[in-house]
Design a protein around this nucleic acid. Structure first.
Lengths: 228, 228
DNA sequence: GTCTATAGTGCGATAGAC
DNA sequence: GTCTATCGCACTATAGAC
């Protein structure tokens, strides 16, 4: 599967996420018309993540945000009740959205090697679909609430556990020869994260997301093959 | 070489760095006595990096900093002229300190494999000696000046280039079989960074820095060996 | 539903006593 | 060399016109 078909199949997009935010916030958002609300939420989402990436969430002022998103202070405050709401919405809806899509995409089970490849590819494709959101969670995790921090840590460990179990399966069936599966799983995670943390590097080198996923898979595979 | 002998040999420490900051700032720091100045600089260094890690540099107030470091606002302002100075000092002295120590430690040349191992180990050991500083540069890079950002990118690419050249050497002498050396070099870098970015994980698992370095080296080696 | 004008708060930075 | 007290400013959040 390549990235283009992944996006066509899953329909992951910022507008999709913002629609979920609007529908999941009855009352909190004072705007009634969905088309207007979603359009402005997309603008707010893009502006918040762009400015947070540039200077950090706390350093971003709401005046910055209004300039970038095209809304006025008054309009902004019909979508949120305070600045922290921006954090909370991204935490609650963004994190849930990502988790749900990841689970859905890795349902198929096959050989350990294939399952591992699917997991790696899906994770990289997901972060390519919403790169600013992944970077936001990584870089701003210290500013998020205790609960969200716990969820993020749990998510990190959960993926790691999934990888670890696949490696153990492969060991049992003789396909892999991994002495410390948990440590190898720990080594695979940063390879997934590097794709969204160092976009500048890969885009400047003309590396596509499909290239990158293939390269990570090949690199990991080399470390798992039994010595002959 | 293990971490303990590395530290004994290189004498890398926060106090050492702060002494360099004091001696390299004639005039800017209004305190004359070195012993007092270095003691307070160490307190400021620790407080700044701790609070930056917890809430980000910009979200840290100077009142926070005074509480954490034990200095008063007045005392603080005899070491800096403004809040940005804290950034500038860490940029100019911290980055230079790290670069210099890394260069010094990787001078010895041997077989490609050994050179690669030394580079990996040294980088991980250095980040273990000054973990808060490495994390600071990674997490706060967006808040740093344009020049420093350029230096950081250059440093990332420089290490990568070093690794890439070693891989090419290994290819030529038939020790390695790497089809895309630059991409493999790009995959090795995040493995070095993971040690200081996810300290919580490794310390909770009882993984020592020597364990971690050995594991990364083994993982990388597996990917480089010619297929038999 | 969106705007401008403004109230109230907490910040960085300084002055001057000790 | 270090302290407390205070100034001016930029921020978040709100009120009320359109």
């Amino acid at each position: 599967m390549d990235f283009e078909t992944f996006i066509t199949d899953t329909r992951i997009s910022v507008a999709d996420l913002c629609r979920e935010i609007f529908r999941g916030n009855p009352g909190a958002i004072r705007i009634k018309k969905e088309s207007i609300a979603v359009k402005n939420l997309v603008a707010l989402y893009n502006a918040t993540l762009k400015l947070s990436a540039e200077k950090g969430f706390h350093a971003m002022t709401l005046r910055d945000l209004c300039r970038e998103s095209g809304l006025s202070m008054g309009a902004l405050y019909s979508y949120i009740t305070c600045k922290e709401d921006l954090l909370n919405i991204l935490q609650n809806f963004g994190l849930q959205y990502i988790s749900r899509k990841l689970m859905a995409a890795v349902e198929t089970t096959a050989s350990p090697a294939e399952t591992l490849h699917t997991l790696i590819r899906t994770h990289i494709f997901l972060s390519e679909a919403l790169p600013e959101l992944f970077t936001f969670f990584f870089m701003e995790s210290k500013n998020l609430g205790r609960d969200t921090q716990r969820v993020l840590i749990a998510a990190e460990l959960y993926t790691e556990q999934m990888i670890c179990r696949i490696l153990e399966d492969g060991n049992r069936s003789g396909k892999f020869h991994v002495t410390d599966p948990l440590m190898i799983a720990a080594h695979i995670k940063p390879l997934l994260q590097d794709w969204y943390l160092k976009r500048w590097k890969y885009s400047s080198r003309g590396v596509t997301v499909d290239d990158y996923a293939a390269s990570v898979i090949a690199f990991v595979d080399a470390g798992l093959k039994p010595f002959i």
